[in-house]
Design a protein around this nucleic acid. Structure first.
Lengths: 344, 344
DNA sequence: GTTAGCACTCGACAGGTGAGAGTGCTAACG
DNA sequence: CGTTAGCACTCTCACCTGTCGAGTGCTAAC
């Protein structure tokens, strides 16, 4: 891996050219446009060595070179100066931020749209895992004799409701008792910290009604154990039509199918939730074979010091990583700032 | 429009063949496979006349004929014996119905998926307009000093929540008063029947707090006037990759873009909400030019005797209308049956 | 170590050809 | 008069071909 400075520069030039044009890059072009004071023949020699090292590929004899996945990986790892948001981009982002931010979920959906429109890639965001978010209030609303609505309000304005049905009517007094217990015991802390023992305690305190109300407690328990993001927002999936690498019917369809399937997309973004910082998976570095011609840049945001949601950008392997990274960085920081503290 | 019986049969044969194969149909093929006891020459004569009448098209001299949009229209209008669901389809549908039906919205999303998988077309469903659904309960839940959550529960298990923020703290007593008023005045009837006068009455009764609570009443008023479906579920959009008519890049992209845009899709299904029964728009009968190569079959479902939601199937002009119609009929009937009455 | 020169390779593209499918027309048939 | 067989005609599609240009690899000279 003893790349001298010149090789690095040439590789970088080829990659950046390829990102822009999506076509094999020739030695002459590099020599003329990036002019390191070298002739095309010299560039050719260097390119041949870079190919031997595995950073470039050669579709056929008389085509230019294209970067290999390891080439991209090297490039990304050395990507010190990340792209800066242009003034226009800044303005658009700020405009987005100005909208009322009461609800994280609507904000995220808007943010995805803006991000996909500005990068021309596909944007993915996830709303926080219910388990991780801090619970603010529980509420139980009787709807009819044996049906009622559970509402959970979490920090960041996240709300979840669920209709519950019991086999026999339940009085409002009992429901009030239940709601009181839940608010006492489970508020101001993340739901995942609730353990079975506490839930059993509540059962016991409800006495005869415990069994009848088991659907409620089951639901809460489910939520507490749920570490997967609840909702996945995918925007700009149709942008893949613009990438020449997906011009073939099958390829486009494959990726499209993947993006339509929330379960699959979940798996795609899960790595982002495990630790802080930006993660990049290039081509087949991703386990999902459908992603072998695509890359994903992942970031995450925090609420109350804990990573709870992911933001990602999917594009072709030759995507503009700098641009993607800077957009994600900007957005994750903004979300963590705005929603991270008290939501009022 | 004096089509004799024979012409009708031939036209029908051509259309059904075209639906199956998506390729121009020749006279010889019809004569051999549908054998009305006529030679290809006779069929040719009839086809020439059908073309003169505008029901068939001729891509070029030596191709077979394809049905024109008016041809399809005639066919659809005469489609007496609608396709019957096969045993397998019935079973799948019933399996779907067996799932717990507490929430209309999750049910609809599942139903779309099943429908798109079974027809190989794109399925669209809308959740009911909030305005039309009958209100069962209001609730107001204080979250912090000057923020609280409004919850509306409607027949069919539809729930809407909204976080509200006020400029100054509001006591729980006032909130309880407001919630009491709302429940007294607005329940057990559709929200769209609420008029401004009633809302103003409530303002007055709240006295000094009226102004402070205006966000709440504004929101309710917005909902009451909202006749557009709140949520649009699109499933199986990637099926369009299977239709040869969208093999061209641009066409596919166009339709895809349309399906991604909720606002546009809303416009597409709106006609279904205006009156009962199945509606079919063939190709450019639809105002949206992006639909000129596609058809849409629309149905609607009722809750409490009122049309509140739409179900549609989008496919190429040569889609299997019988199949689409029968699926939509089955589903709309099922939904109206299950959710139409009291939701407990 | 760098460069110019040159032969070589390969894909893209345009033009040409033949097969196949389907039609339109005409004349003959019952 | 409706129906049919026959045939010339048309058009697409797949295939082949030759040419062009881009880009390389190699060699020899600087």
């Amino acid at each position: 891996m003893d790349l001298n400075e010149r090789k690095k520069l040439i590789l970088q030039a080829i990659i950046e050219e390829y990102i822009r044009e999506a076509e094999p890059v020739g030695s002459k072009y590099i020599s003329e446009n990036y002019g390191f004071g070298l002739s095309s023949a010299t560039i050719r020699n260097e390119m041949a060595e870079l190919e031997e090292l595995g950073f470039l590929l050669h579709p056929h004899t008389s085509a230019g070179r294209i970067p290999s996945q390891s080439g991209f990986r090297l490039y990304v790892d050395n990507l010190h100066e990340t792209y800066r948001l242009s003034l226009l981009e800044m303005q658009k982002m700020q405009e987005l931020m100005k909208t009322r931010m009461e609800e994280l979920e609507t904000f995220l959906s808007k943010a995805s749209r803006v991000m996909s429109a500005m990068t021309n890639y596909t944007a993915i965001t996830t709303t926080p895992t219910v388990a991780a978010a801090e619970m603010l209030r529980f509420d139980i609303l009787p709807v009819s004799g044996n049906s009622f609505l559970i509402t959970m309000v979490m920090r960041g304005g996240i709300v979840r409701t669920k209709m519950c049905y019991t086999s026999a009517p339940i009085s409002e007094t009992v429901l009030r008792q239940l709601s009181g217990l839940l608010n006492d015991k489970m508020c101001n802390r993340p739901l995942h910290s609730v353990n079975l023992k506490e839930i059993n305690d509540i059962y016991r305190q409800l006495g005869d009604y415990g069994a009848l109300l088991s659907p409620v407690l089951n639901y809460i328990n489910e939520c507490a154990e749920d570490m997967t993001p609840i909702n996945i927002i995918v925007e700009g999936a149709d942008n893949i039509f613009d990438y020449p690498e997906f011009s073939s019917r099958g390829k486009a369809r494959e990726l499209f199918g993947l993006l339509q399937d929330k379960e699959e997309v979940k798996k795609l973004v899960m790595p982002a939730l495990s630790e802080e910082g930006i993660k990049i998976q290039i081509g087949s570095e991703n386990q999902n074979f459908k992603m072998s011609d695509s890359s994903i840049v992942l970031g995450n945001y925090k609420i109350g010091n804990k990573v709870v949601g992911a933001i990602g950008i999917i594009g072709p392997v030759r995507m503009d990583y700098g641009k993607a990274i800077s957009h994600i960085e900007y957005l994750t920081k903004a979300i963590s700032d705005i929603f991270g503290g008290d939501s009022e």
